[in-house]
Design a protein around this nucleic acid. Structure first.
Length: 520
RNA sequence: GGGCCGGUAGCUCAGCUGGUAGAGCAACGGACUUUUAAUCCGUAGGUCGCAGGUUCGAAUCCUGCCCGGCUCACCA
């Protein structure tokens, strides 16, 4: 079609020819397997350092041959010998290949002509140290394993274009080692959370992602269609009501770690599909959960940063996780910030509205009284809570699934853990009185009727379940993505999601493009 | 959705007071058996995001659109 070829296309064609030539010479350009007995990182770990000032003649590196495999990420050919770096999952190690060691035929016709930066190869050889002290594998055998057809991003500057980094995350992962580190940490955090809960007798469960009623949180759902049943269903906004049914069923400690979906804005703090851990524990209350949360953080800090580390730096700010975390009351703190009394916050609609307007809360008039209170809280209190802080005892009206606070029927036993102004955990002593739950759902319906799209859906079967009896229970949810952001010092949620949601690219030059542009 | 910033070679970036594009790396050819951002000589590579407009002339100015980043709003 197009006569002129881009440089990239030319490279691809050249390399396709190399694939054919490799075949002609009896090599499999897309090999099946390679026996490795070590990794780059393992060799560097064991033999990488040599003491400064130590005579290298005295140093003994093992005589045995090692074999490893990975991607060639740099190459320096110097006539009859060459250096290159090979990168595997664990790191990158330098290799040295000499014509006289691998044979003139292979060196000249295969290595120099048919192997490129980006190719995946297997190598075997002994270790030695170069003049400057870098641990290096002297290649006695090299086997092409996978031919790479496209040129890699630049070795020194890496890949910086954020759009490309997200769209082609694989390139980001090849070229930017710190990105691999972020996702390793993410994996570790998730693994350790499971370990923490498993060790306390929890079982991991899976509940429906496709739900006929999207309830358990205040959010707009994604809608999809279930062909087999010919009904619209929702992608879950929370697993909460299903998990509680399991408590009715007799499981006493359950957790679910998985995706939730909320059809809302995308930003540095929000991705429409995000990962949550929720756990429920029978015969416990929110006090127990606060303690457990502190223990969980200690466990995670030990695992990610090293035993005993209780202070980390996030975006230039020191965050201390020394127990106990600060505890403040929702109304008490809001009272301090607004100058209104707790009683006024609960009952004086006029004063709260006036304050909301004063603070600049948009459309304050349209909000219900307690939504205004919550807005004030989010505007005045949350941003100032930098160090880990439990905010306790929320107004009942904004917490339809939480149990009334002992001694104060206007509040519920609920806490949020706020760190760096962001909500990291949300938990309550769970409401298990079916009559009251029904009442609370009805209030939510009223809110919905007044125009609050995010008011919670009424779930009749959940009420039925509660009527069979759910034991006293405490439940908590933690947003994994935000936790990972905190632990990896990332300011954008996209940096902790392997494939963040982006608008699809239009591929012009193809028929699709025309069809698409007409379709709008 | 609003505001601000950006999109130039495969990658990282210059060029932006209008005169049709440059560097480094990567690629290709050559020299080089301890280099390490290897070095040296040579070659090739671009519908300057897309579409219009102004102009003798647009990467550069104007308008619209597409994509992205940050931010505000909503949420976890």
């Amino acid at each position: 079609m197009a006569e002129e070829k881009s440089l990239e296309q030319k490279i691809i064609e050249q390399r396709k020819e190399k694939v054919e030539k490799l075949k002609e010479l009896g090599f499999e350009p897309y090999a099946y397997k390679y026996e490795v007995n070590t990794k780059a990182g393992e060799l560097l770990e064991k033999f990488g350092r040599h003491k400064e000032g130590e005579e290298r003649e005295k140093e003994t590196l093992p005589e045995e041959e090692f074999s490893l495999a990975g991607r060639i990420v740099s190459m320096r050919i110097m006539g009859k010998a060459a250096f290159f770096h090979i990168q595997d999952e664990s790191g990158r190690i330098q290799c040295y290949i000499r014509r006289d060691a691998v044979g003139e035929e292979f060196y000249n016709k295969v290595f120099k002509k048919l192997i490129d930066i980006g190719d995946i190869v297997g190598v075997k050889g002994k270790l030695f140290r170069t003049r400057t002290g870098e641990l290096t594998l002297e290649v006695s055998e090299m086997v092409p394993l996978t031919k790479s057809l496209r040129p890699l991003p630049e070795k020194w500057h890496g890949l910086k274009d954020t759009e490309k980094r997200y769209r082609q995350r694989y390139l980001d992962l090849i070229v930017n080692p710190e990105v691999r580190e972020v996702f390793r940490t993410r994996s570790l955090i998730i693994k350790k959370i499971r370990e923490f809960l498993d060790s306390r007798g929890f079982i991991e469960v899976e509940t429906p992602v496709l739900q006929p009623i999207a309830s358990g949180a205040a959010a707009k759902p994604f809608i999809t269609h279930y062909n087999a049943l010919d009904i619209d269903v929702y992608l879950r906004i929370a697993p909460e009501l299903y998990l509680k049914r399991l408590l009715v069923g007799g499981f006493e400690r359950v957790y679910e770690l998985g995706k939730n979906f909320r059809n809302e804005g995308i930003s540095t703090r929000h991705n429409p599909e995000f990962t949550m851990i929720e756990w429920y524990m029978a015969y416990a209350d929110y006090e127990d959960l606060m303690e457990m949360t502190e223990e969980l953080f200690e466990f995670l800090l030990d695992s990610v940063f090293g035993k005993g580390v209780r202070e980390i730096e996030y975006q230039g700010t020191k965050i201390s996780f020394k127990r106990p975390f600060r505890r403040i009351s929702y109304l008490g703190e809001l009272s301090k910030k607004t100058g209104l009394t707790e009683d006024e916050l609960l009952h004086d609609e006029e004063k709260v509205l006036k304050k909301a307007k004063e603070v600049g809360i948009e459309k304050a008039e349209e909000l219900s009284h307690f939504k205004r209170v919550q807005e004030l809280f989010e505007a005045l209190v949350e941003p100032e809570l930098i160090q880990p802080t439990f905010v306790v005892d929320f107004p009942k009206a904004i917490s339809p699934l939480a149990k009334e606070k002992r001694g104060n029927p206007e509040l519920v036993e609920r806490f949020e853990l706020i760190i760096f102004g962001r909500e990291v955990a949300n938990a309550y002593t769970e409401l298990n009185n079916p009559a009251e739950q029904e009442e609370r759902f009805k209030q939510q319906l009223e809110e919905r009727a007044k125009g609050d799209e995010e008011a919670m859906e009424y779930d009749a079967d959940f009420i039925t379940a509660l009527e069979y009896g759910m034991p006293p229970t405490a439940g908590e949810g933690i947003g994994i993505d935000r936790l990972v952001m905190l632990f990896t010092n990332k300011d954008s949620i996209r940096e902790v999601l392997l494939f963040p949601q982006l608008r699809p690219e239009k591929r012009c030059g193809e028929e699709i493009c025309q069809l698409e542009s007409e379709g709008e």
